[in-house]
Amino acid sequence: MEVTFQFDWAAAFRSIPHLLPGIPWTLLISFGGLAIGFFIGIFFGLLRISPLRWLRFPAILYIEVFRGTPILVQVLFIFYGLPQLLGGPINALTAGIAAIAVNSGAYISEVVRGGVQSIERGQREASLSLGLSRTQAFRYVIWPQAFRRMIPPLGNQAIISIKDTSLFSVIGVGELVRQGQIYIATTFTALEVYLMVALMYLAITWSLSIALRQLERRGLVGQ
């Protein structure tokens, strides 16, 4: 018996218009979640380096819990679990954004901590010796330098979170993978469609990488 298989380019191209509606959902969930995660990360990252133990402890707890559990479990917990507590359903988009926010927030906390701690001690000492308060030293001297160093790892986290949204097909939010699954259910062209889905993720993440490299080249990042 002879097995022949032909990659059906026409089927691949035909799937594109059916997949494209997933892109705005993927972007909305990932960048919406990342924007919130960024503020969560600044908050817990700074708590994490507080000299006060009772401020550090909640930050460590948060980071360990959300970094140490799978994002798939987190989104299932939020979408199916939390409604039992809240007494009402959570829509899938909100659940997806929330999952990216709390998950990326944990990693971004560590990025913020690393960035701030990477600034040489002498920068703080010089600021204080000039009479700046600790808050002023942080705001005008430490943070601007730390933030530049944080951009490459933040870009890295953005790429990871964009790909993580693919898991949210399980809660039925209409992102890229979900659109692919729906289309395959009627056409049975899994090979062609998943390849197209993969290429679309690649297009998003690659563009982001290029944008980040441009920032670095212009010297706005690092030092």
Partner: peptide
């Protein structure tokens, strides 16, 4: 005022 061994200028 203080001047340090490593200068400690603000690089940004």
């Amino acid at each position: 005022g203080m001047v340090f061994q490593q200068f400690n200028l603000f690089p940004h």
